[in-house]
Write a protein that binds this DNA or RNA. Sequence first.
DNA 1: TAACCCGTTAGTGAGCGTAA
DNA 2: TTACGCTCACTAACGGGTTA
Length: 400
Amino acid sequence: MQIEKKLVPKLRFREFSNDWERVRLGKLVEIKSGISPSSYNFSEDGKYPFIKVEELNNCEKYQFQSRFYSNSSNNLIEFNSILFPKRGAAILNNKIRISSVPLLMDSNMMALKCDDSKLYYEFLYYKIIKEKLYRIADTSTIPQLNNKHIIPYNLFIPTLVEQQKIAKFLTAIDTRIHNLEKKKDLLEQYKRGVIQKIFKQELRFKNGDGKDFPEWKYLQLGKLTTKTGKKNKENINYPIYSINNKEGFLPQGEQFDGMDSNERGYDISLYKVIKKNTFAYNPARINVGSIGFSGKLDDIIVSSLYVCFKTKEALEDRYLKQYLNTFQFNKDVLRFSEGGVRQYLFFENFSKIKIPLPNRMEQLKIASFVETLDKKIALITQQIEQSKSYRKALLQQMFV
DNA sequence: TAACCCGTTAGTGAGCGTAA
DNA sequence: TTACGCTCACTAACGGGTTA
């Protein structure tokens, strides 16, 4: 006997009980593709924002920050349309947004305008987020989505009232995530401001007796650090690490598509061995923040091009770690970098950078203070992740 | 014939290797 | 140590072919 699949989601509001209806998406939406920017005359007083795939990275569900505006109403996308990329890797990243105003868009994007009497646009928005664009798209060469994928796509929908209720519930969770992200932004801004004040000595700590700490010295990093980086001459299979500008030290396999230099057949006997509590940076990338601190990582190796160093007794690692994130340090990196097409900061010039040096007790006070802010930021980040997991679970269970 | 599709090329950023 | 080139991933944009 064939058991008919019940057409209702696992998780549902109590007041609804009807089966969901199977429909073809093509019958409920108007599909629009964007067109090439060469078709528009952009001007500062243009009425309509022009959105490219790139803009989807830095915008929120409804908010866009366009760099281009045009008065052309050619191929205008109505507000409350669902926007997403139709070509390229952005499909894999599932970047879906809703237009809050009429706008223009690039040829690599697509928009769906719902028939409001049958399909609530925010319900469709969450449905596509749940289904994921790449599952609908062709992914043979460059991922792409066309009308042929949208028109025959079958989905199950409840009544309009239930659609709205589901969408509003999920929107409330999105709002919570948005507020937490805003809070995190503010805290990060505050941290930047406070760090600036501390290093300009507009804000000073007192010692345990409530008295002022001694005046700061200003010393070159060459006097406060020692270059390290013994070669892996014995060709030992130490774990191989990279350093990137977001996470610092990172297993190289994670940075490069699951393959590290050893697996690629490179000569790791030239690599440098990193011990605990060592700083390392890429001299061609330190200008974008590619510097890391090994902390508890011990006996790992990095590419021969990295500059590695340890701090001397007068300089606390925790203090230096915070100072490396300051505007002043980044400014000095640019000032002391050399080169033609590409800028480099090798140890010789790195050593010339002067940094403010409080006594060790004050360095630790400063580090502890900033680390407290870091902990708060980490806590909010964790709350954001939890909310996102909750949202993901709901998306799985509230749709058929 | 306009709209759509999609192959292709150019450009950019990030990270690393290696010859001189 | 230094400078350049390579690879990979990604986006922007053009433009010729196809389709409705």
